[in-house]
């Protein structure tokens, strides 16, 4: 049965600043009024369901930084120790590009360091000779290796051939035995077939003779009647 106090009491129940005495009175009523008690339970559950919310991540946005920087004319604000070093990687890349494009040659010997631009020509002959010797050495090593592989391959081939031939012989003998057995079986089968055929033929001939005898008897009997 609905209670006239439900709405007021539940509204007060959810107030945070409710005096302890008032809260106690409300709870006494809830304990004695089934309608109010059920209503409160359901509403507390509704409130509790909402608390299941899980905070979601904010999608990426610029956080108003562009507006802030524009209006405050902030060009480049320091961001700690590393902020001043952010161009280092670009500078190093540019320096390496320059070294490559200008053919920079750095020589270090007992006389000290020397740097020259486009100095590759002087070293070309030396490099060519070194390259030629290296190529020759590589070619000889390669030839020797190929020869060794060929020899090894030849030996392997002979062994393989022998094995194959032995296996072929063995297989041939076994095959011949099988063929012989087959022919023998076939021969015996043919003899049996032939015997049965002759028997049938003899039986047929005998039946034919019997028929002819019966016909002859019939004819002679007919002749006697006439």
């Amino acid at each position: 049965m609905p209670c006239p106090k439900t709405e007021y009491l539940i509204q007060e129940y959810f107030a945070d600043d409710l005096a302890p005495v008032a809260r106690e009175e409300i709870e006494v009523h809830f304990n004695s009024c089934e309608y109010c008690s059920n209503e409160l339970e359901v509403l507390l559950r509704s409130q509790s369901d909402l608390s299941q919310w899980q905070d979601q991540q904010v999608p990426h946005w610029d956080r108003g930084m562009e507006l802030f920087r524009r209006e405050h004319s902030v060009i480049n604000e320091g961001r700690g120790f590393w902020s001043g070093w952010q161009w280092i990687s670009t500078a190093v890349s540019l320096a390496m590009l320059a070294v490559l494009l200008l053919n920079v040659n750095v020589v270090s010997n007992e006389e000290g360091f020397s740097i020259s631009f486009d100095a590759l020509g002087a070293q070309n002959a030396y490099l060519d000779a070194r390259m030629l010797a290296f190529e020759q050495g590589q070619k000889e090593a390669m030839d020797a290796l190929v020869q060794r592989i060929e020899d090894s391959q030849e030996g392997n081939n002979i062994e393989l051939l022998q094995v194959v031939m032995e296996q072929a012989q063995q297989t041939t003998i076994e095959n011949l035995e099988v063929i012989y057995a087959y022919f023998e079986r076939q021969r015996l089968q043919d003899l049996e077939d032939m015997r049965v055929g002759y028997q049938e033929l003899v039986d047929n001939d005998f039946a034919t003779i019997r028929s002819l005898q019966q016909i002859a008897q019939f004819i002679s009997y007919q002749g006697e009647i006439r």
């Binding site: 709405e7 539940i10 509204q11 959810f14 409130q47």
Partner: peptide
Amino acid sequence: VKTRFYAALKKLK
């Protein structure tokens, strides 16, 4: 506010 909250909970239910 109390009335709105109570009405809201009733509606949610």
